[in-house]
Amino acid sequence: MTAITDEFSSAPVLPKWIAPVLLLAFAYGVVPLIGSSYLFEAILLPFLALSLAGVGLNILTGYAGQVSLGSAAFMAAGAFAAYNFYLRVEGLPLIGSIVLAGIVAAAIGIVFGLPSLRLKGFYLAVSTLAAQFFVQWALTKFSWFSNDSASGVIDAPKLLISGFAFDGAVGRYLFALTVVSILTFLAYRLVSSQTGRNFIAIRDNETAARIIGIPVLKTKLLAFAISSFIIGVAGVIWAFAYLRTVEPDGFDLDRSFQILFIIIIGGLASIRGAFFGAALIVVFPLALSRLGGFLLGDVFDSGVLDMSQRIVLGALIILFLILEPDGLVALWDRVRRRLLFAWQST
């Protein structure tokens, strides 16, 4: 075992920024040219939005250790806030309304993060449910939020940034990709900063963190604020770039659970984990429906699909919790190390 570890440390290690940069170059340079509209609409756009939401929740739950079941509420708050800012504030550019929407989501996050100063674990999770139900209720109850539309549905505005319109599936994909990349980079910087280490300290031992002088209350609320900001912007992407028309019911408790599953499957306390988890959550139902249709033909209708999705996903989560608590990221790292080792020894 020791020998193997030594082997690895002597291997030429690529700089850490190489992989993300290559990936981004591929995502910007190659994907728009070869991708079909189905790829963008059904896979990449929801993947990007959910990844960003996963990054946001991971800051709160994975790093700072505060369990939250209110993610969808913060997405909804972001989406509806951006819609209203853009609609009601004359001359406000789209970027401005997105940033303001994030700030609104952050403010709501702080309010519903206040119980975390007293509550821990499951009790805190239950109290964040209040955010989930309250926001969804308020958006449905007060039609002002959806500009008095009869059905409560909002239509996203044109994605226009300094005169440049992000039209069509590819345009919206590039828009989402840019926002997600910037926020993910900032999130990465955050978790490797002093504040990020304070998050981990509070997660691992709150009493010790307080004793050594980490401002625990402030740091917890900061985690809620930053997490909610990112999840709020993810909500804007979900509404404006992916679905284009959303209603409050689209941000229900199921969505919150979905985001929680993303970070559990992908890997807690890992920025990459959110992307791994989101990829699985988005691609898995599509793959299952293709596979089911191929194997079983007409018997595999949407009802069966829905049911089998839940069963397989539930089993998958249980398996992950038992076999790989560190998520897909840990699995990926292990496989990559094996491959590298095999490649070196040949």
Partner: peptide
């Protein structure tokens, strides 16, 4: 009462966290 998720170095450095004056925005940027 160590912070299991941090390296030994960061655990020890966290003993100086009470002195930190910079805010998260400054640290991120």
């Amino acid at each position: 009462a160590l912070f299991k998720g941090l390296s030994v170095l960061d655990n020890v450095a966290s003993g100086l966290a009470y002195k930190v004056r910079s805010n998260f925005a400054g640290q991120v940027l």
